[in-house]
């Protein structure tokens, strides 16, 4: 973290952003990571600039956590057309995808890089938000609605730390922010547009492997404060189900522990350090199971908990 930061992406003109992406790369700070991005893909620069406009620029020539690139390739299969190829430090970790999905490919690629390479952190598969100086973690499997819930909470004044990674240095119980655009999928896009009509979304990208995807721009304040850690207080395991009656039920710590490690990327790889960090996390928290169908009701319930517990 010695790189020089002089400005934010939004300070650059669209032309400057494109020149850097196509030239020696555009360095951005995302939480504890400095990422150098190169891209020469159609329809990527403008939405990227818009969604990342609050992020600090890290000047090229510094040491980066990783170098990622996106480039156009023409292919005959599976269908003749233009595809986008994602690479990290020169390696291509997965197949090329249709070029109109470039923004989603970038976001998924960055997730992959963090999950596979940043093993110095304990990584929980959890959204993390902060209110009243304390962190709420929402550990859950994909498809449980945690991105939608975190986007809604962020819209209602919670500080977003992440919608995907609960990041901790082993031996500590404060989450590191790594705020990123939040990918809404399918019906969630309409749900969030109804919940927050002024919501700023990236392009709607249909027919991805996860269906239709659109990214919510993270709140400016969450990005500006991405250096501020938040000590844990609530571990809430969310489950969205149609027609579900709202319920926020406290669960025993041991159950919280088991649910947490079920939703960790690298807990078992960290051995004793992972176990002790999760134990300390559980000891510093209250654990709950949240069942809901109404986003409004869930946001109100969780916010009420935070305000009564630590207001």
């Amino acid at each position: 973290m010695t790189a020089v930061i002089s400005s934010r992406i939004g300070d650059l003109s669209p032309t400057e952003v494109s020149c850097r992406l196509r030239g020696r790369g555009l360095g951005i700070r995302i939480g504890p990571f400095d990422v150098c991005v190169k891209a020469s893909v159609q329809d990527f620069d403008e939405p990227f600039r818009r969604l990342y406009r609050e992020y600090p620029i890290v000047e090229a020539g510094q040491v980066f956590s990783c170098h990622v690139s996106l480039r156009d390739v023409w292919k005959l299969r599976p269908r003749l057309g233009r595809y986008v190829r994602f690479a990290v430090d020169g390696r291509v970790p997965h197949e090329d995808l249709p070029s109109e999905q470039a923004l989603a490919v970038f976001e998924w690629g960055l997730n992959l890089v963090i999950a596979l390479r940043m093993q110095c952190f304990l990584m929980l598969h959890a959204a993390v938000l902060e209110r009243n100086g304390r962190a709420l973690a929402l550990p859950a499997a994909p498809g449980s609605g945690k991105t939608t819930l975190s986007a809604a909470l962020a819209e209602r004044g919670w500080r977003l730390l992440s919608d995907e990674f609960g990041l901790l240095r082993p031996g500590t119980t404060s989450f590191l922010p790594v705020p990123r655009p939040m990918p809404l999928k399918n019906e969630s896009i309409g749900v969030m547009q109804a919940f927050a009509p002024g919501l700023e979304l990236g392009p709607i990208i249909p027919k991805t492997r996860k269906g239709t995807v659109a990214h919510v721009r993270p709140p400016a304040d969450s990005v500006l404060r991405q250096h501020e850690l938040a000590p844990v207080r609530w571990l809430v395991f969310p489950e969205w189900r149609a027609e579900e009656v709202l319920s926020l039920q406290e669960v025993p710590s041991a159950e919280g522990f088991m649910r947490l490690v079920t939703n960790a990327f690298n807990y078992d790889m960290l051995g004793k350090a992972g176990f002790e960090t999760v134990r300390d996390l559980v000891n510093a928290s209250r654990c709950f199971r949240l069942s809901y169908s109404s986003l409004n009701a869930a946001v109100a319930k969780v916010t009420d908990l935070a305000d009564k517990d630590f207001g």
Binding site: A254, M258, G271
Partner: peptide, 22 residues
């Protein structure tokens, strides 16, 4: 083994296997 106890519930971590048991 590593143990953590909450009331009657005990979580056991077996570093050799990487598995955790309640």
């Amino acid at each position: 083994l590593l143990f953590s106890k909450w009331g009657d519930d005990v979580v056991v971590f077996h570093p050799a296997s990487g598995l955790t048991h309640l």
